[in-house]
């Protein structure tokens, strides 16, 4: 397994010298690599057509707020090698634009719609209906880390009278009766 993972990385690095960072010392069948964003369709095509990584497992995104970056991750899997390859790339957080890959896997369309809606990432040439899960959404994309979901919920939805502070019920009961919350229960309190 270890040699196989090393071989895969070696082969990819030969074809794509732009690969900046690799990692294969996971205890399970995972290989990570990072590449700049305009090489993504090329490397995914290569993985699918030449190396047999036919299956797109997932496309996901991580919000690195402090660095000002989005990290988009494509996970592909080969039924022959039984190895997952994580293809990662960084996008600029202020202008998150990258290439559309749904001509490689049609199901990528759904993931891209989700990322467009939840993180505001624009995939160039993506043809899909505007709304995916959120209907009539007019605020910042909600999965970004600087989106304050609690404030938004307070502004938009009614709260049950007496429960506006969303406090732990056990706390209220404990204050009323004068008991103390036991230690084991405290870690489940908000």
């Amino acid at each position: 397994m270890e040699e196989k993972k090393a071989q895969i990385l070696e082969k990819l690095q030969k074809v794509f010298p732009e690969i900046s960072e690799t990692k294969n010392d996971f205890p399970y069948n995972r290989v990570d690599l990072r590449i700049e964003k305009n090489k993504i369709p090329a490397i995914l095509f290569y993985l699918k057509d030449e190396m047999g990584y036919k299956h797109l497992v997932h496309i996901t995104c991580v919000d690195w707020l402090e660095e000002g970056k989005f990290e988009v991750i494509f996970i592909v899997w080969s039924p022959v090698d039984k190895i997952k390859v994580f293809v990662k790339t960084f996008l600029d957080r202020n202008n998150p634009v990258m290439d559309n890959v749904d001509m490689i896997w049609r199901q990528a369309n759904t993931y891209e719609r989700e990322l467009r809606e939840m993180f505001g990432i624009q995939f160039e040439g993506l043809v899909a209906p505007k709304e995916f899960i959120l209907e009539d959404w007019d605020d910042m994309p909600p999965m970004r880390r600087d989106f304050d979901t609690e404030a938004y919920a307070r502004k938009r939805f009614f709260a049950r009278p007496g429960r506006e502070d969303a406090r732990d019920v056990r706390q209220t009961i404990a204050e009323r009766t004068g008991e103390e919350i036991p230690d084991f229960a405290k870690k489940y309190s908000r």
Binding site: I133, P142, F147, T149, F157, F158, A159, R160
Partner: peptide, 19 residues
């Protein structure tokens, strides 16, 4: 449905159904 439950701070679920 009563007070939001564990989704009390969710951006996309209503909290009080009887409204």
């Amino acid at each position: 449905t009563i007070n939001g439950g564990m989704y009390w701070d969710s951006y996309n679920t209503i909290k009080v159904l009887d409204r």
